[in-house]
Design a binder for these strands. Structure first.
Lengths: 120, 120
DNA sequence: ATTATAGTTGAATGTATATTCATCTGTCAA
DNA sequence: TTGACAGATGAATATACATTCAACTATAAT
């Protein structure tokens, strides 16, 4: 009977706690997606972009001006957000307008700001 | 009268939109903190750690076993989370027990999962 | 047709950061 | 007081990724 049945460099202190936690943990795939989602909004530039377009749609140039950044940089970030299904866009003539794909983002911002205020 | 009054490599297309967005944007400091908060939970390992301890407190060894990771790696991440005020800890003998600092994390997880489900 | 502008994209560079390794402290037991 | 273990931590390495640069497409105007 081994003291350490798990693949880790230390012994188990509270076996029940560990097993309980293991049971309630979602699958790895869920954690990958969840972490990926937070990682996407966990960047100052993307935070600002999402905030800017959360009120009404904006084209790339306007967003670049709001953030005082290059079109290229903004476009790269918008591409990342689009491929991840966080924003969507539609074209009108030469311009491409971006909006949030759904409104979970606004909710997440709300709680994030609550957390920050709680820390002050 | 210059066509481009802002420090950006492109023109403003919709002046009103840009000004409106600029007015409602929080200060940079807020965005730094907000992005930092999401960045912290935007990592698979830290996501798992937070999830594991969200139910009841756990010591470092137990967390390491739940995640099948080394104590050192877990401890580094816990240190980061602690210094950022996301988790807190108390010592009992040789062991250090970690819990969430407040329950905004659980709420954020809830919305994150909603977003993921919305995408399936 | 030609020119200007909106936007995208691949490659390169620089920066940030997660994990590992080795070492250290603090606590308990023998 | 010696040994064993929980945990923390600095340095090093490796990986991820944000921005820049240059080149490209597409649309509109002259």
């Amino acid at each position: 009977m081994s003291k350490n049945e798990f693949i880790c460099d230390c012994n188990i202190i509270h076996k029940k706690s560990v097993e309980k936690a293991l049971n309630m943990m979602p699958k790895d795939e869920i954690f990958y997606k969840l972490a990926d989602f937070y990682k996407l909004i966990g960047d100052t530039t993307r935070c600002k972009i999402l905030f800017a377009i959360s009120n009404h749609e904006m084209c790339v140039c306007d967003i670049a001006n709001v953030l005082s950044m290059s079109k290229s940089s903004v476009s790269h970030q918008l591409g990342t957000l689009r491929r991840s299904g966080i924003v969507k866009c539609h074209k009108e003539g030469k311009e491409v307008y971006y909006t949030l794909d759904d409104d979970h983002i606004s909710k997440v911002f709300k709680i994030g700001l609550e957390h920050i205020n709680h820390k002050m």
